[in-house]
Design a protein around this nucleic acid. Structure first.
Length: 428
DNA sequence: CAGTAG
DNA sequence: GGGCCTTACTG
DNA sequence: GCCC
């Protein structure tokens, strides 16, 4: 697991580090970047528990603890430290958080062996280093030559920042040499050709023609089951809804028109109860249970209320039990949370889908604002838009950076920027 | 923590 | 009979 | 609801 594949370039002087926690030289800095809230708390507590001397600044820290995803150049870049060789100060020793994890397991500090230490950035020794090493050096050069504006890297990230996912180098790929070379060319030679993601042979990048065709053959079945699943999902019967949804997925994958009970019951995730219902739809063309639900006042109202953003099965039932039956009842009488107020105000809008042109417009605006904050971001709109749908229920935008770091903490400033532009009406 | 949403 | 998908925010 |  540890990064021992490049041991040739490892500073061999460091076999294992001895230090005494009370030694004033044994100062630590904990780099929270790329570490989730919960893990941060755990590690911070561990540092206290082991009585390590934690500094608030990395400047004078002898040891720097970082997430496993970091290599030395990234650490230096994030901390804006000088990596030059002829520095009077000894360079800090960069340690993986695994050292803390293992120490927690052992209930005491485990020896700080070289497996926990991330190698210092060394000057290139040979003309042709190994592939796995090469991108690291190139990357360091990029950092030095192209300083970028970065947003509050040293601020703890809010939980919502996890919406921004990242693409990162993977040193443990099982790919063969050819693929490694491809990845190398991609990320190193053209690292700043942003805005476009590699067009892989992925399911999600293909237009769903086959799926479209498949839904046609059993369309009536799927529609009725989906209606039931939607209703159940708005009651407290979420597992029943879950089963319906799984059955729908299975049937959607059937190319052939289903026309016998025997073939239904064979399908995975479809048992006797659902098979009977599906056969009823095929045989009679109707679904009595669904029609019962649709004619029930309770289910109708629960469905109506449940379509309000921020109202789930429990709140819907509470409102029903309080005697509310219409959206106007809610508007005038019910106690609504902030989200529910917005959900009610924009009830129809939230149920509507927008043409994909509109998604493109939104994408353009978001791109403009994001790139103004951090250049060279990779921005890709995903979801139904990326799958080529004619209409979309929402806009999913994935923002990353090829260095795996610079996009961190972007979300909040980006939302702020969009809000100032007047693009955001409300947030929920 | 329960409820909701992703 | 009990799990089925995970994680985060809100109030 | 399905499945173990």
């Amino acid at each position: 697991m540890s990064a021992s594949s490049t041991k040739n370039d490892f500073d061999e002087n460091i076999a294992s580090i001895d230090f005494i926690p009370s030694d004033p030289n044994a100062t630590f800095y904990f780099l929270p970047n790329g570490i989730g809230k919960d893990r941060r708390t755990i590690f911070t507590n561990a540092i206290q528990q082991f009585h390590l001397q934690l500094l608030t600044s990395p400047k004078n820290a002898r040891f720097i603890i970082v997430d496993e995803q970091f290599d030395a150049p990234k650490v230096y870049s994030v901390l804006k430290l000088d990596a030059s060789e002829n520095d009077e100060k000894p360079k800090p020793i960069i340690i993986q958080t695994k050292w803390l994890s293992d120490s927690l397991k052992e209930k005491h500090l485990v020896p700080l062996t070289k497996d926990y230490i991330i190698r210092a950035p060394l000057i290139r020794k040979k003309a042709m280093p190994s592939f796995s090493q090469e991108p690291v050096i190139e990357e360091k050069t990029r950092f030095q030559n192209k300083p970028k504006r970065r947003l509050s890297d040293d601020q703890p990230q809010g939980g919502s920042a996890t919406q921004v996912k990242q693409r990162r180098y993977s040193s443990d790929d099982d790919d063969d040499d050819y693929d490694i070379m491809e990845d190398y060319n991609d990320t190193v030679k053209n690292p700043y050709k942003h805005g476009e993601l590699p067009k892989g042979n992925w399911m999600c990048s293909m237009s769903s023609q086959t799926a479209k065709k498949n839904t046609e053959v059993n369309k009536d079945i799927i529609e009725k089951l989906q209606a039931m699943a939607d209703l159940y999902s708005k009651t407290n019967d979420k597992w029943r809804a879950y089963s319906y949804q799984k059955a729908i997925t299975t049937i959607r994958r059937c190319t052939k028109r289903i026309d016998s009970y025997e073939e239904i019951i064979k399908l995975p995730g479809i048992g006797e109860s659902l098979a009977k219902k599906i056969w009823e739809i095929i045989d009679t063309g109707s679904f009595e249970k669904l029609e019962d639900f649709q004619s029930s006042e309770y289910m109708t109202v629960i469905n109506l209320f449940g379509n309000i953003w921020g109202c789930g099965p429990n709140i819907a039932k509470q409102w029903y039990d309080q005697g509310f039956r219409t959206l106007d009842d809610l508007r005038t009488k019910a106690k609504l949370s902030h989200n529910q107020q917005i959900g009610l105000k924009y009830y129809d809008e939230f149920l509507e889908r927008m043409p994909r042109d509109e998604v493109a417009e939104i994408e353009a605006v978001v791109k403009e604002h994001a790139l103004a904050l951090v250049p060279d971001l990779t921005i890709q709109t995903c979801g139904s838009y990326r799958r080529g749908k004619a209409t979309c229920g929402d806009v999913d935008i994935l923002i990353t950076h090829s260095d795996g770091i610079s996009h961190q903490g972007l979300l909040i400033p980006l939302v702020d920027s969009l809000r100032k532009s007047g693009m955001l009406l409300k947030f929920i």
